[in-house]
């Protein structure tokens, strides 16, 4: 039955929200600068498509770069942390501390160190998105089923074999969960970077458009920019979900 499909439910809730949106505007007589109607946002999307399209790619590149570096470095840091309790006790508090420092405080410092441009934005994206990968993957690597660890010990395997044949595949679902969270954070990181350091460099990403549209009081265009930013986030999460499906669908409990 069609109503059993997930997309069908999403479509129903989406359509209901648009109806509620229109009703709110007309019933409460909300001014356009407060909440533009969906068709006005769509109109802004069409009118500013060139600007938005360019900004989309300007933001996409540092966001992807930061996320890719997060996914690689995050996995490597997790592998290192899982090697011994001593390494975890020594390094994990500092990794956590880095995550706890508000990114807005770090942003100007990063701009001083790395300049006002791509590198700073990608670094901010990395800093905001690497922690979920590290926390999840490390947890997966160190919580491997004890019986499976003992099983491999009876085969007298090396540490490397234990890691390669057991701990890494066991931690894979944990890594992918972390990556899913990071993918949704990467867009926030890239936008924060652009808002605070990117605009000065002349990079005209979505962050720059937010500043411009806000200054010009172009509210439908501002909503259109938010829509495009959401789209990037959705693409990221969608790609991670696809990887998740490709790698786990045959054996993992989450697909049954």
């Amino acid at each position: 039955m069609i109503y059993k499909d997930n997309w069908c439910w999403s479509l129903i809730t989406g359509s209901s929200l648009i109806i509620v949106w229109y009703l709110s505007i007309y019933l409460f007589e909300l001014p356009r600068y407060f909440l533009p109607a969906p068709h006005e946002i769509f109109h802004a999307l069409i009118c500013e498509k060139k600007l938005l399209f360019d900004a989309f790619f300007q933001t996409l590149i540092p966001a992807v770069s930061g996320l890719v570096v997060s996914s690689i470095l995050g996995a490597l840091i997790s592998l290192m942390l899982s090697l011994s309790g001593l390494i975890r006790k020594t390094l994990f508090p500092w990794v956590l501390l880095l995550q706890l420092v508000p990114i807005i405080v770090l942003t100007p410092i990063i701009a001083i160190w790395l300049g006002h441009g791509f590198l700073s934005i990608a670094t901010i994206t990395f800093l905001i998105s690497f922690f979920p990968i590290v926390a999840n993957t490390t947890h997966g690597l160190i919580s491997t089923d004890k019986i499976l660890v003992e099983l491999l010990k009876t085969y007298r395997v090396s540490k490397f074999q234990e890691m390669f044949y057991l701990r890494i595949p066991y931690a894979l679902p944990f890594y992918l969960t972390g990556l899913k969270i990071s993918a949704s954070l990467a867009m926030i990181g890239a936008l924060t970077g652009e808002l605070f350091v990117g605009s000065a460099s002349g990079a005209k990403g979505l962050g720059y458009l937010i500043i411009i549209f806000r200054a010009q009081n172009k509210i439908p265009e501002l909503f259109a920019t938010a829509f495009i930013a959401c789209l990037i986030g959705l693409i990221f999460v969608g790609i991670v979900c696809l990887i998740n499906w490709l790698m786990l669908r045959k054996w993992h409990d989450s697909f049954r």
Binding site: I147, L148, E150, T154, Y155, V157, Y165, P169
Partner: peptide, 28 residues
């Protein structure tokens, strides 16, 4: 040559039946 069979079947869930049986030989 000693072999241990656990209370739980202790199969690696990401490997097929064949690959699970192969495991000790692959590792060696």
């Amino acid at each position: 040559e000693i072999s241990f069979v656990f209370q739980d079947a202790a199969l690696l869930p990401w490997l097929t039946v064949r690959k699970n049986i192969e495991l000790p030989l692959t590792l060696a």
